[in-house]
């Protein structure tokens, strides 16, 4: 079954829409889906009042949700989803795919901050750029993302994979400041450039296939290794606190 949601207008006040996930749509008809509760500012509203809903096919192998139009002020789409698929044909607001444990979310445009926050499993694909805190933890948590895969075709913002404990994040473009902060497991691959990777890293692996614009002074150079047919410099750290994370870098800044 495929459910297509088209926003009736461009929202200024964001819509909070963790209810938009296949788990919640499975086995429901159009009118049932239209009566699902969402939040628009401080008002609880029915999905049908904000979106045109089209339902095709019957529910056999889980629901697929397609969002047409502008979702750049719709937060939490796919938050906590366990199965099924969501495609967003445009940009999406914060917390897309946060805490998801299964299924797949594809964002055709850009994703705002906290996409894939505290992810447990499943797959999140951002075909445009991702904002800050991609795959990061919530404030105060010791482990953020623990499983699943996040793929970004464009660039990502600052603090990619903060407090990551497992899973994998792959950014085809560049990322900003301090990726892999406090990382204790999992793997981050960034094909472009970054700044100060691996701060407070305890364990896990970061691979920078482009350039590190600035290196932390608390990583130990261990030699070179071949990763994905690239000859990369290997570092361990963050040694501020005896970390044993691994950081592979293609190009480091000249001293």
């Amino acid at each position: 079954m495929q459910v297509t949601l088209t926003p009736k207008k461009a929202f200024k006040v964001p819509v909070e829409a963790e209810a938009i996930k296949p788990d919640n749509f499975a086995g429901k008809g159009k009118s049932e889906i239209e009566s699902i509760a969402l939040w628009h500012g401080n008002k609880e509203v029915k999905l049908g009042s904000l979106f045109d809903v089209k339902v095709e096919g019957v529910d056999k192998e889980g629901a697929k949700i397609v969002i047409e139009g502008d979702a750049s002020r719709i937060k939490r789409i796919g938050e906590g989803m366990t199965s099924g698929e969501i495609t967003i044909n445009g940009n999406v607001d914060m917390h897309c795919g946060a805490m998801m444990s299964g299924g797949k979310v594809i964002v055709k445009g850009d994703a705002d901050a906290w996409a894939g926050r505290e992810m447990r499993g499943g797959e999140l694909v951002v075909e445009g750029n991702a904002g800050n805190y991609l795959g990061a933890g919530y404030w105060g948590v010791e482990k953020g993302m623990r499983g699943g895969v996040i793929r970004v075709k464009g660039d990502a913002g600052d603090y990619v994979g903060g407090h990551m404990g497992g899973g994998e994040i792959i950014v085809k473009g560049s990322a900003g400041l301090l990726p892999g902060l406090n990382m204790s497991g999992g793997k981050i691959i960034i094909e472009g450039d970054v700044t100060l990777p691996g701060g407070e890293m305890k364990n896990g692996m970061i691979v920078i296939k482009g350039k590190v614009l600035e290196m932390l002074p608390s990583f130990r150079f261990e030699g070179t290794e071949i990763i994905d047919s690239l000859k990369l410099k290997k570092f361990t750290g963050d040694l501020t606190r005896g970390g044993s994370g691994t950081l592979y870098v293609n190009i480091i800044p000249e001293e």
Partner: peptide, 18 residues
């Protein structure tokens, strides 16, 4: 940030890498 990291690395006995 890097200055503080360097201080911590030195405190942790890793001054050779700084």
């Amino acid at each position: 940030y890097p200055v503080l990291s360097a201080l911590r690395a030195i405190l942790a006995g890793e001054e050779d890498i700084v």
